[in-house]
Amino acid sequence: MASFDLKEAAQLLADELEQQKFGEAPETLYAPLRYILSLGGKRLRPALTLLGCYLFDDDYKKAIDPAIGVEVFHNFTLMHDDIMDEAPLRRGKMTVHEKWNSNVAILSGDVMFVRSYEYISNVEDKILRQALALFNKCAAEVCEGQQFDMDFEERETVGEEEYIEMIRLKTAVLIGFALRLGALIGGATDEQSKVVEEFGVNVGLGFQLKDDILDVYADQDKFGKQVGGDIISNKKTLMLIKALKQAEGADAVELQNWLEAKDFDKEEKVAAVTDIYNRLGIREMATEKSNEYFTKGFAALENLDVSEDRKNLLKEFGVYLQNRDH
């Protein structure tokens, strides 16, 4: 039986990505594409496509092209999200729109979306229609999630359930799709692939909630993005939603003042709001909610009919995400 290591799979994908040409001219269209892919990242989503395949077939390398498609699509969403968020950094480096400009980043992102279809289409004919239908659904949901996220910026209040649905669409469905696509390539039945997807979506929810926590509490040198960025931009994360609900008296007044402030020192705001979170126990509340979704993901695996050795690979992945510090 062949073995599988998630880190080795991620490195294999990184090596494969380096060899891809994607396109040559005009250089200003393809250079940003190669640039954002060269920034690295954990390559977790495409590695999950390989893992999803390995759950049902030793020959997981037949899923490499579709896995590359997953990674190219993911980076397309990051490129466009960065424009909308006016983010200065991505993985510790200049974002594409900062290095070039927004128009270049938009168009280069568009061609990434096209290329992702080319790679994902490289599956056996018997699952091609299903793979593309699932990808279309996933891609549309990611866009829906991003629009909800932007809509929330214009609203004074956002409910906890609304926020969870937004991150399910924006983040978790792609993790679920990556795993399900791999499972189908590996020969899983539709029902088996749905169980794998359910695990991925729940772990994806836990992953994003953990990311929100790290945005406030991570080590800047490890995180790669601007720590405190969500606080600076008044992003309505679960942490802020809970803080607004829990805060009373002086804490409520101070928090509202920071949310309404137009001219402020960024570091001072991050420190002050973080102190409010600490006093209210917001980090602990958010961690509890994150762990709830990881637990749901692990529970889903009880219905997965594969060997315990292979099932444990998924469990180990979930535990890694749950315990990560950047």
Rank of each mutant, 00 (worst) to 15 (best):
K7I: 15
A9I: 05
L12G: 04
L12Q: 07
L12I: 10
L13Q: 03
A14N: 10
D15T: 09
Q19I: 11
P26I: 10
P26T: 09
E27Y: 12
T28E: 15
L29S: 07
Y30G: 05
A31K: 08
A31C: 13
I36V: 14
L37F: 07
L37I: 09
L39N: 08
R43L: 09
P46R: 00
P46F: 02
T49C: 05
L50K: 00
L55M: 09
D59R: 06
K61C: 14
A63E: 02
A63W: 01
I64R: 01
I64A: 03
I64T: 04
T77H: 03
L78W: 00
D81E: 11
D85M: 04
L89I: 11
L89S: 06
R90S: 04
R90H: 08
R90V: 06
R91Q: 09
R91L: 08
G92T: 09
G92M: 07
K93D: 14
T95R: 01
T95W: 01
H97N: 09
N101T: 12
N101M: 13
N103D: 15
N103Q: 13
A105E: 04
I106N: 04
F113S: 06
R115F: 11
Y117F: 14
Y117N: 08
Y119D: 04
Y119W: 11
V123C: 02
E124K: 03
E124P: 10
D125R: 04
I127S: 02
L128S: 07
L132I: 13
F135A: 03
C138H: 01
A139R: 02
A140Y: 14
A140R: 12
A140F: 12
Q147R: 09
F148K: 08
F148M: 15
T157Q: 14
G159E: 14
G159Q: 11
E160T: 10
E162Q: 09
E162L: 07
I167K: 01
R168S: 08
A172S: 09
L174F: 05
G176A: 05
F177Y: 07
A183R: 00
G187L: 05
G187R: 02
F199Y: 08
G200S: 06
V203H: 02
L205A: 02
L205P: 00
L205G: 00
G206S: 09
Q208S: 07
L209K: 00
D211H: 03
D212W: 01
L214N: 05
D215G: 08
Y217V: 09
A218M: 07
F223C: 05
K225H: 07
G228A: 08
G229H: 05
D230H: 04
K235D: 11
T237W: 03
L238P: 05
I241M: 06
L244D: 10
K245T: 15
Q246W: 14
A247R: 03
G249V: 11
V253M: 14
V253Y: 14
E254F: 10
E254Y: 08
W258A: 04
A261I: 15
D263N: 13
D263M: 11
F264D: 12
D265Y: 10
D265S: 10
A271C: 14
V273T: 06
V273C: 08
T274K: 08
I276K: 01
I276D: 02
I276R: 00
I282M: 05
R283W: 12
T287N: 13
N291M: 12
N291E: 15
F294V: 06
F294R: 02
E308K: 06
N312F: 11
N312I: 12
E316I: 05
G318R: 00
V319G: 07
L321S: 03
Q322C: 10
D325H: 13
